[in-house]
Design a binder for these strands. Structure first.
Lengths: 206, 206
DNA sequence: AGTCCGGTACTGGACAGTCCAGTTCACGTG
DNA sequence: CACGTGAACTGGACTGTCCAGTACCGGACT
């Protein structure tokens, strides 16, 4: 079974995945019917069932597919420059990119979707957290440890520091976004969260 | 309509509320049927509908009823002692109580329930956040401002400091709990989160 | 002509909300 | 202390709707 071929079948499969993703994201798991998905993909329901044995499998595939996208974020963190002169500036830029990534409406809705169905699909929530979040945090911890080795930061528990870094940045906007529909943050707001968070982080860990 | 009377009707109403709460908390909104609730309350379905016009109203009432419980937390924060000698100790105790309150399994499940249905019941999510979370944060900000006035903390934006305080403490455990079923944290883990978070906070804000 | 594939109609089950016929309970009256 | 009365409650049947998953048919391509 090829995942990105160009045959008719592969194209239909792709169309179904895209339709299902957008449907699940905007209406939730139980709010989306297989008929909706088929209609949106311009495909018969039969074809949907030919590619995915049931609704749960389709849902799981969509959620897990999104964990690839954290690779970019991991690279970003891994390539963080260790330059004493521009540390605050560099950290702020990194923070800003964190915030942009995690307050992206699509990511927020995905997050809500996973949380909402964590009871029904326990392994999905765990996978998402481990493959997505913990991977970034581990990389960030390694980066901090490296910076500490150069004497740029004073850190004894790198992973804890990484948690604190993200907590300072993300708690407010992400938390709020979970309870409200999906507030679009302005650039200025995100800049403010980034600079304030980094300032507090450096005050604590430099 | 008395809310806590002892008449037959009031007792039934109470039974329905309790049954519905536990059903919704363990099975979610759409996973709970009105028949389930009636059965669990040992009451006829008709009686349920006599007290609550429909499922949405019943759900809303349950969620909003829980916002009262933050009063205790608000009091706790408002009565925070301004003593220079024991500041770290006092803050750690407060942090520990925050953590205990927010990692209580019931609170976590409630939180998931609200987030999961924030699309369907937008005003519920907003209310919960504002009546619950923001109230505590505002009180905490006022307390910090007071401490800053006494020279115990160095704070220019009290509300931001309150956000940072809670972010340092809660981001890890709450975030994780959203994605996993409901991990029971040990006392030792919570102590660790509290002391580490407070240490970082004081390093940044003292 | 045979084989595959997509569309449509169907099945079985769940569930919100209604209706009704009969029962229990609280309570004031004789 | 009986008795009657009205309100609240019960059990269950019923309607209309929605939906996951399946069966079947007719047309296209080979």
């Amino acid at each position: 079974m090829e995942t990105s071929g160009h045959g008719r079948s592969a194209l239909k499969r792709q169309a179904i995945l895209e339709a299902a993703t957008s449907a699940f994201l905007s209406s939730g798991y139980s709010g989306t019917s297989m008929d909706d998905i088929a209609r949106l993909a311009a495909v018969s329901k039969q074809t949907v069932y030919k590619h995915f044995s049931d609704k749960e499998k389709l849902f799981a595939e969509i959620i897990l597919a999104t964990t690839d996208r954290v690779d970019g974020m991991v690279d970003l963190v891994a390539r963080f420059p260790a330059d004493a002169d521009t540390l605050e500036e560099d950290l702020t830029r990194l923070a800003r990119q964190f915030l942009a990534a995690l307050t992206h409406p699509r990511v927020l809705r995905l997050r809500r979707l996973v949380i909402a169905n964590a009871d029904t699909f326990p392994e999905l929530g765990a996978d998402w957290y481990e493959q997505g979040f913990e991977r970034v945090l581990a990389t960030l911890a390694a980066t901090f440890e490296h910076l500490a080795g150069r004497g740029l930061l004073r850190i004894d528990q790198p992973l804890l520091a990484a948690h604190h870094f993200s907590g300072l940045l993300l708690w407010i906007p992400v938390n709020k976004a979970m309870f409200y529909g999906s507030p679009q943050y302005t650039e200025a707001e995100l800049d403010h969260y980034a600079t304030a968070g980094v300032r507090a982080f450096l005050a604590a860990y430099r």
